[in-house]
């Protein structure tokens, strides 16, 4: 079984996002290990990009902070290598296509596989544009995560059919960010997906509280929390790790109770 799919086997999965180099690259390592220890099942590591068109202010600012510290791809690869010595939690990169193209697709995928990255989420690479990276993803065994949006409609079955690892269902229109309310009819979309595949579905965009997470796992196999975790990192310059640990544990408790 795909290492990513495995996390959904015995429980509802909690997926946490953070931006690499947001505090500093060493602190990111510490934060990843903390998130892993406190109940996350998979961690999404954001590779900062200058023009993140699918991201809201919180993640945009985190990426800008990381870039202002001159974080390079190789710094991030080295950090992940260190994480891998201490944790075997599945890790996926979230970034935009340009940094990959610039680094060289094959070189990028090869490096990912060497350091133990399991998958990749690229918001500006719709299914139609995946051909140019697919052969490398297959060769180096990196799972490309399929995103499905509230606007996907008749695309859902095509997207779901080729999905691997898990399906990232975008809960709301717009960009990443904390939202008070998720208005999309999750059960309808998920049953649409279920018609064509058994691949687990995790829901992201806008989720920040244990209450929201509980509501979502009534229908879905997991939740993805991004901006809310990034906000904790941004707002707690001291005690970051402690606050992060408390937050993740609280969400996980809520999801399992």
């Amino acid at each position: 079984m795909n290492k990513i799919t495995e996390i959904f086997k015995n429980n509802k999965a909690l997926i946490i996002y953070l931006t690499a180099g947001d505090s500093s690259i060493d602190k990111t390592e510490e934060q990843i290990l903390t998130i892993a220890k406190n109940g996350a099942d998979l961690i999404e590591i954001g590779i900062p990009f200058s023009d993140p068109v699918a991201d809201g202010k919180i993640i945009r600012d985190a990426m800008a902070r990381a870039l202002s510290k001159n974080i390079k791809l190789d710094d991030i690869f080295n950090m992940v290598k260190n994480v891998r010595k201490k944790s075997d939690i599945p890790l996926v990169f979230m970034t935009y296509l340009n940094p990959l193209l610039f680094y060289g697709y094959e070189r990028f995928f090869k490096r990912c596989s060497e350091i133990g990255i399991n998958g990749l989420i690229i918001p500006d690479m719709p299914l139609e544009e995946q051909d140019e990276v697919k052969s490398f993803a297959d060769e180096y065994n990196i799972t490309i995560i399929t995103l499905i949006a509230p606007t996907s409609k008749e695309r859902i079955s095509v997207l779901a059919r080729q999905a691997k690892g898990f399906i990232y269902f975008i809960s709301s229109l717009g960009v990443t960010g904390v939202r008070n309310k998720i208005t999309t009819n999750l059960s309808a979309v998920i049953s649409e997906i279920r018609k064509v595949t058994d691949i687990p579905v995790a829901v992201g965009f806008g989720i920040s509280t244990a209450e929201q997470a509980c509501e979502i796992i009534k229908y879905a196999d997991g939740v993805i929390i991004g901006s809310a975790a990034v906000k904790i990192i941004a707002e707690n310059k001291k005690n970051t790790v402690l606050k992060l640990a408390e937050y993740i544990a609280e969400i996980k408790r809520g999801m399992t109770s």
């Binding site: 500006d124 719709p126 299914l127 139609e128 544009e129 140019e132 606007t151």
Partner: peptide
Amino acid sequence: MSKGKFGIHGGQYIPETLMNAI
């Protein structure tokens, strides 16, 4: 399949949320 290319340039590198609109 990638659409609307001029040689290697062009394409539709946009989030899934916008694909149906495009």
